[in-house]
Design a binder for these strands. Structure first.
Length: 674
DNA sequence: TAGCCTCGAGTTCA
DNA sequence: CTCGAGGCTA
């Protein structure tokens, strides 16, 4: 435990730091740390002040909710303070909250209302005689900024309330959250980027920046939306529960959220939180958790409030998905095709439940576009796509000691020349026998969509190549158990399994898979299958001229040249000879006689996890019946097959194009129809 | 020639 | 999942 003196010093530091970030966030609309980190600072300060109440100073940020309002916009005093909510991390916290409610109310059950916690900007709207009079931001909780003119530009906000029972209510004070839908945010940023204008880091920042414009014309062009979540005390004809308040607002024309629900007890609340979390990536708006409120307004009044937050409501936060961290170094990785990919090493951070220490920067153009430098503080995101990426550099946190990065002109692995062809984004090591490339080629050869050799892991491939046991994929077929068990971390049993898996791949692998496995530039799963169906055998393809290749659908000049050149290359011919000598003989591909199948002419996209088969199996089954299975939803897609936790972008694309979304049962029915 | 559509390639962590 | 780029089509 720290001494009181240390605590006092730390509290002073925290207050200064929080004041700085408040200013950035509230006054400048340009925060330099993530919300989660800001929350952490506040939590630490609160903890100190709870332990030593006499250390609380009048100017402590815990004694107010936000920052001072900007001078240019008028100010509005809230009738009752707009408080923030205590934020909870885990189930135990929520349990404590609920138990406290039970204890204080002396009951064995307290019904709650659950609502998603929208990641936007809180506002208060005052209606008198049914007409919108004033709209204000939260500001410091007591006094907010007058954003009436800006809020009026939001189409969703009624300028006059719908009369519920003949006449307009005398006075209505409603609070809600202004936000920007994720897809609108992405589209807006894309346009800004094309125009070389500054982009927004996230929808919340964009909503804040849009609502606090001095010129309402600018606000009007921003896709702002709103959800209402509170009917404030003092409103006429206010019902007796939060749930009824939501319904009353909806009837008045104040949009509420359709996910909001009544929860009879704690178990229901915990259950509902998990369900909302599972839907998070498919929502059209950002949420960072769920809010739980005691449903009865009388109970709320009895529970009362603490200094800055109510005792009858809490926010249970999801693990953060956006955080800031520092780039420690950037190094170049070499891929199968020789592509040099810059990867940033980060000071590790917790993001969406996992530790992230590396993030790909893709290529030099990307580094230049975002102006990413070694030593920079960056905002890192790990959204629905799972794979983290750098959103933007926090330019204001630069010290001047950051270093620009350029990909090397020589391969970091073999020292060979690395070339970036003019007009292309990728820099490549041109040495085809570069050990990094050899390793990646072998990995690719054994991978699932290719020869599917179980047990050929990364570490093993490293050892095989480094010890000179394997220089090309044909050499895999010369391996013996005796050779393998000399390697580290490989006992006889697993060595035998690997040998068996390699042997099994000699036969029983389709021509398409083998072609894919060879790693011909530009030839992936789809093109390989197309070639296999058209030529029927490796020999026929080897003899194919560029002209013949060009006649195939989907093969243009670039691919025709690439394929022809690969088979003309002396080393590749030798490789094929060696493979054949070791008994590698793919199954002759059945002629593409699926044109008359039951699914002929239908295009499918499969997303999410299916129960009865893997995604790949589903796609093969579709193709076997004459259908097409592609990777992305477009207007030519007939069906989107959605399994468990489907991809958010695919669901959205389906909605956009009006694609029919079917579940696994419906797919099985279609597959079985014949 | 522009603007889809599709494919290939690379990617994180546990 | 996202990007870049090839191929196809209006």
């Amino acid at each position: 435990m720290t001494t009181k003196k240390e605590a006092q010093k730390r509290a002073r530091e925290l207050r200064e730091e929080i004041a700085l970030h408040d200013h950035r966030y509230y006054v400048l609309d340009d925060p330099i740390i993530s919300d989660a980190e800001f929350d952490e600072l506040e939590r630490e300060l609160l903890a100190i002040e709870e332990q030593y109440p006499d250390l609380v100073t009048p100017d402590s940020p815990t004694q107010r909710v936000g920052g001072p309002p900007r001078q240019e916009l008028g100010t509005v005093r809230h009738t009752t303070p707009m408080r923030s909510l205590d934020s909870l991390q885990d189930e135990a916290d929520v349990r404590r909250f609920y138990d406290r409610c039970l204890r204080e109310l002396g009951r064995d059950r307290v019904p709650l209302v659950g609502e998603p916690k929208y990641d936007g900007l809180s506002v208060e709207l005052v209606y008198e005689e049914g007409e919108l009079r004033v709209a204000s931001t939260r500001g410091d909780g007591t006094v907010g900024e007058d954003v009436t003119e800006n809020v009026k530009t939001i189409r969703e906000v009624p300028l006059r309330l719908r009369a519920d029972s003949g006449h307009a209510p005398r006075r209505v004070i409603a609070r809600g959250e202004v936000y920007i839908p994720i897809s609108d945010f992405a589209a807006f940023n894309r346009r800004r980027e094309e125009a070389a204008e500054k982009t927004f880091a996230n929808p919340r920042n964009m909503a804040a920046g849009s609502l606090r414009q001095l010129d309402p014309k600018i606000t009007a062009e921003r896709p702002l939306r709103i959800f209402f979540w509170e009917l404030v005390a003092g409103s006429s004809a206010r019902p007796e529960t939060q749930w009824e308040c939501l319904q009353a607002m909806q009837r008045m024309g104040l949009r509420t959220n359709d996910k909001a629900t009544r929860l009879p007890d704690l178990d229901a609340a915990i259950d509902w939180f998990a369900r909302i979390g599972a839907q998070r990536d498919r929502l059209e708006y950002e949420i960072d958790g769920c809010v739980f409120k005691v449903d009865s307004l009388a109970d709320q009044a009895e529970l009362g409030i603490k200094s800055s937050s109510p005792r009858w409501a809490v926010a249970w936060k999801f693990p953060p998905r956006q955080r800031t961290t520092r780039i420690v170094a950037i190094e170049a990785q070499v891929g199968r095709t020789g592509a040099l990919t810059p990867v940033a090493q980060l000071e590790p951070i917790q993001l969406g439940g996992v530790t992230v220490a590396n993030v790909s920067l893709h290529n030099q153009d990307e580094i230049d576009r975002k102006d990413i430098r070694v030593g920079d503080w960056v905002l890192v995101e790990r959204a629905g796509d799972v794979i983290p990426h750098v959103v933007q550099v926090i330019v204001d946190r630069r010290t001047g000691r950051e270093k620009r990065y350029r990909l090397p002109h020589h391969c970091p692995v073999c020292g060979g020349e690395a070339v970036k062809p003019p007009g292309e984004a990728i820099t490549r090591c041109v040495n085809t026998s570069c050990p990094a490339q050899v390793k990646e080629r072998i990995r690719h050869f054994g991978s699932r969509g290719a020869m599917d050799i179980d047990g050929l892991g990364d570490k093993l491939v490293d050892q095989l190549v480094e010890r000179g046991l394997v220089r090309d994929v044909a050499a895999l077929y010369d391996l013996t158990v005796e050779r393998l068990i000399e390697l580290e971390r490989l006992a006889e049993k697993s060595a035998q399994n690997l040998i068996d898996a390699i042997a099994a791949s000699r036969r029983g692998v389709s021509l398409g898979r083998l072609l894919h496995a060879l790693g011909i530039p530009g030839v992936g799963r789809a093109v390989a299958a197309e070639l296999a169906g058209h030529f029927g055998s490796l020999e026929a393809l080897e003899e194919a001229t560029e002209e013949v290749l060009l006649e195939m659908p989907g093969i243009g000049p670039t691919l025709a040249t690439s394929i022809h050149a690969w088979f003309a290359d002396r080393h590749n011919r030798e490789l094929l000879r060696r493979l054949r000598a070791r008994g590698v003989a793919p199954e002759a591909a059945p002629a593409a006689a699926t044109a008359g199948g039951p699914l002929a002419g239908k295009t499918f996209v499969v997303t999410g996890a299916l129960e009865s088969m893997s995604r790949e199996e589903a796609e093969e089954a579709i193709r076997a019946r004459g259908g097409r299975a592609t990777g992305s939803v477009s207007k030519t897609t007939d069906y989107l097959v959605a399994g468990a936790s489907p991809g958010a972008s695919k669901m959205k694309a389906a909605e956009k194009h009006g694609t029919e979304v079917i579940d696994e049962r419906a797919l099985l029915a279609l597959l079985g129809s014949r």
